[in-house]
Write a protein that binds this DNA or RNA. Structure first.
Lengths: 173, 173
DNA sequence: CAGCCTTGGTTAAAGTTTGAAACAAACCTA
DNA sequence: TAGGTTTGTTTCAAACTTTAACCAAGGCTG
C-alpha cells in the first residue's frame, strides 16, 4: 500500500503544532527553572500530588497520571525527595508499593510558584485564543490523546515506497 | 495584581493539549527509534536538511530551523556524523561557520523511514481530525508559536497571591 | 589599526531520560 | 503449597540535554 503523505494543509498544521509544542515547553521550562528551580515535569508531579486526597499517590498511579515511565518517576521523586518537597512512605497493605507524598514544604513551593506558572501559560496560550478556539483545542487534544492511549499505535507495516522528490520527506521537524 | 487562574474550561483544554503532546512525542519517538534508530529530533534534523538546496545548512541556521540550541545541535550532529548520515564542511567565506550536509546514506535512511513516520503521525493525528479541525490546529498552533517567537515571554512580575484550596495549583501536568 | 563587542561553534560537567534487567512481593493454579 | 507468572518498584549504563564557559573569527568604532 502506497504511503498516504501529508497534504500541504496537513503539513502546515503539523509544523505549527510542533513549533508550538517545542517553544511552549521551552518557555515553561525556563520560567519554572527560574522561579521554582525545577523543570515542568517535576512541577507537574508536585501538582498532581496536590490534587489527591492526602496529597499522596502510589508511584505507579503517579507515573500514570503524569504520563511518564515509572523509571523516570523514580529518578524525579528521588531528586524531589532530596529537596524535601516529597517524601516516600511504604504501603501497608501491599508491601511492593510505595507512596509519594507531598510535604508541607512541597505544597508551599507550589503555592508560591503557581501564579507565575499560570501567568506564563496564559500569556502564551489562552491570551492568544478565542473562547471558541479553547474549545477546539480541547476537542483536538482529546482526540489525539484518545487515539494514543488506547490502541498502542499499531505500528504500520512498513513497505517500499518510491521516493517523491520536491516534497519533503518529513511530516515536520 | 491577583492571579488570573485558569477557568475549568481552560484547564480541560490545557490538560488535553499536554496529554496529546506527551503521548504523541512518546509514540513518535518509539516508532522512529525502532525503524530509524534515532529519536524524533534527530530525524527532524535530517528532514530539515533534506529540504534545503544542496541538502546543506549552516549549523546556526539548522539549529534555528530545528528550534533547538546550538549546543544541542552540535551533539546531535556529532552523533549523526558518526552514523554517516551527515557530514560537516567548513564555510569558505566565513571561517567561523560550518555546514551540516546530508549524506547520500542519510538521504537513504530518510527515504526508507519516511513512510512509517508519516503513517504514525497520520494514525495519531490526522485520521482523528476533520478537515475543519486540521485548519483549527494550524491556526491555534501558529498563534501560540507567534506569541513565543517574538516577545520572548516577558516574565510576569510574580507577586504574592492568597492560596485557593480545592482548585489545583497547577494549570496542568 | 587597537580595543571591544558580537557571532558561530564547541566543550565540559552536571542533570535528566531511556530501556532493559533485576528484585521482591503478591497472585495464581494445579 | 510449590512453582510459575504478574505486579510494583528500583537500578544501571548508555544516550541525551542543559548551562555556562570558552575560543576563534568578524565587525565596529575611535
Amino acid at each position: 500500500m502506497t504511503t498516504r503523505w501529508l497534504t500541504p494543509k496537513e503539513q502546515r498544521a503539523w509544523r505549527a503544532f510542533m513549533a508550538a509544542k517545542i517553544l511552549l515547553e521551552d518557555a515553561i521550562d525556563r520560567q519554572l527553572q527560574q522561579d521554582a528551580g525545577m523543570p515542568h515535569l517535576y512541577y507537574g508531579i508536585l501538582a498532581n500530588l496536590s490534587e489527591e486526597p492526602g496529597h499522596k499517590l502510589r508511584m505507579t498511579d503517579l507515573a500514570e497520571k503524569s504520563k511518564i515511565t515509572r523509571s523516570r518517576l523514580t529518578y524525579a521523586v528521588t531528586r524531589l525527595e532530596k529537596d524535601g518537597l516529597i517524601r516516600r512512605e511504604d504501603c501497608a497493605w501491599d508491601k511492593r508499593s510505595s507512596f509519594a507524598i507531598l510535604t508541607d514544604e512541597g505544597m508551599a513551593v507550589l503555592e508560591r510558584t503557581a501564579p507565575g506558572h499560570v501567568e506564563t501559560v496564559r500569556a502564551a496560550v489562552f491570551d492568544q485564543l478565542s473562547d471558541e478556539q479553547v474549545e477546539q483545542l480541547e476537542t483536538i487534544g482529546s482526540a489525539i490523546a484518545r487515539a494514543l492511549e488506547g490502541g498502542e499505535t499499531p505500528r504500520p507495516t512498513s513497505d517500499e515506497v518510491p521516493w517523491r522528490r520536491r516534497s519533503s520527506p518529513c511530516s515536520g521537524p
